[in-house]
Design a protein around this nucleic acid. Structure first.
Lengths: 264, 264
DNA sequence: GACCGGCTTTCATCCAATGAAAACAGGCCT
DNA sequence: AGGCCTGTTTTCATTGGATGAAAGCCGGTC
């Protein structure tokens, strides 16, 4: 046959889902086939099945998009909506007190994923998107998640080139390592103009019995008078959430902690 | 072979995802196999691939749960997070003004799916869950979505037995049909104690160029003084959102409106 | 009216998927 | 310790679902 035999059908289906991204939420069949590296007829067949089930939807423009059914199933992810449900009230409290941006993120492999965000209208604009990914080495939540990640994860992040976002972004592995130690020591992270030159964020860990599973942060204007004064606030929120996680039980068991695998 | 030949691999993979529900967010391999009606070894293999990709995660208790990667992909659904992003500011406005529960829902086949909810702490408790489903014939959002659904959908709902939730729930197809006509005439729906005896909801349609794609509602205490006075408020929110939808364009095209298919 | 890009269907071939069976791993009761 | 569960993982011979080249189809465009 033509393209590499040895690919499972499942992997092809997943490759089709992988083709979608925040930048490309709508794709034609040809684009899908190209991105998933599948022959057109194959893509056609698999996509038809996905549409029939509701994993994909076909718009009136002929393009395919992620379907509501997949969103429904995805909403069952304990580290997604589950965590969000738990955290939202505390995030709202934090917003009420500060009227600044509040963010919640978890680590997935070597990046972070934003689970929820409360964007204050009067606050600094932030460019994050719920469901979006970002590097671990720059943001407040990223530094927290990295600081408490398994050594192996830290080493892999430190080994790779660290992207620079502003002139202040720490891209030196040695300096970053020192910052991570500092984060562990004080129990919170401050990221000053590491991503944009107008913002600064303060983040704290959220712990479950097995370790740090998420991070919460405030994003404020970089020239705010007393950023450090916010740290206890964010830390308190983190501790409340940690307690909630510790006692939280699903009907059929606890929120999972870290997946046993690392992608790729 | 053993179990019915004629099932595609893809359908088996999707059946595994289908096994998860709000009531069963964590399953053992055996439970998964049972629910998906697959032999254990088959389930074992497919599940392993899903875990490797991140669609499922295996907790320290050995149970499988929906993985963050699937949540990420699901968050790309235009009718899910896409709609939510657009609607949230208006929903927050509605909350600020009323301090009552605000709900956003879309129709999926013969049911509705809640996309977002703002639950006022001081408001009537509502039992809905983001990502959860509910029947169309009782709630405010449901009545709106049903009233503006294709005739074929209405007929199918009216033909099936209508579940009763309270002594006031309208379960007579003839009366329901009259109510739907009324909703279309006045442009909003009021559901008084149809789901619980303490709540009442007022809902309005959200229109895209192709028709009604979602509904927004307020849920208040049933004995509130002036429920009808809320209607213009909800309708205004609906109209603002309709306008936003009309002009909203994704990088690669418009939000899809209704999928071309009906499930099952 | 011929061309072109994208989509859909056909059909003979074959390898990934399959499931019965058996091995394996704990937990629990005796 | 031994036996007996329940649940998970591996093996291996067999086969049917998946495959992709090729051809047909559709709608727009030069």
């Amino acid at each position: 046959m033509g393209t590499q035999p040895g690919r499972s059908v499942t992997s092809k289906v997943l490759a089709l889902l992988d083709a979608f991204s925040p930048a490309t939420p709508a794709l034609t069949l040809s684009e899908l086939a190209r991105r998933a590296e599948l022959p057109l007829p194959t893509a056609h067949r698999r996509v038809a099945e996905l549409v029939a089930w509701g994993a994909l939807e076909r718009g009136d423009d002929g393009r395919y998009r992620i379907g509501l059914r997949l969103w429904e199933v995805g909403s069952l992810a304990p580290r997604g909506l589950g965590l969000r449900e738990l955290a939202l009230p505390i995030m709202e409290d934090l917003y009420e007190v500060t009227h600044e941006n509040v963010q919640l993120a978890v680590r997935q492999d070597l990046e972070l994923v934003f689970i929820e965000r409360i964007a204050g209208r009067r606050a600094v604009p932030v460019l994050t998107r719920v469901g979006g990914r970002f590097a671990l080495h720059a943001t407040g939540v990223g530094l927290v998640l990295l600081a408490y990640a398994p050594t192996e994860v830290q080493e892999r992040v430190l080994a790779a080139p660290l992207e620079r976002y502003t002139e202040l972004t720490v891209t030196d592995p040695v300096r970053l390592r020192r910052r991570l130690a500092e984060v562990r020591r004080v129990g919170y992270a401050m990221s000053d103009r590491q991503v944009t030159m107008d913002a600064l964020s303060i983040a704290a860990p959220i712990r479950a019995p097995e370790g740090v599973v998420a991070a919460i942060s405030l994003v404020v204007a970089h020239d705010r008078a007393d950023p450090v004064a916010l740290a206890p606030l964010v830390q308190a929120a983190g501790r409340v959430l940690s307690r909630a996680l510790g006692t939280y039980r699903q009907p059929t068991g606890r929120v999972p902690l870290r997946s046993r695998h690392e992608r790729q």
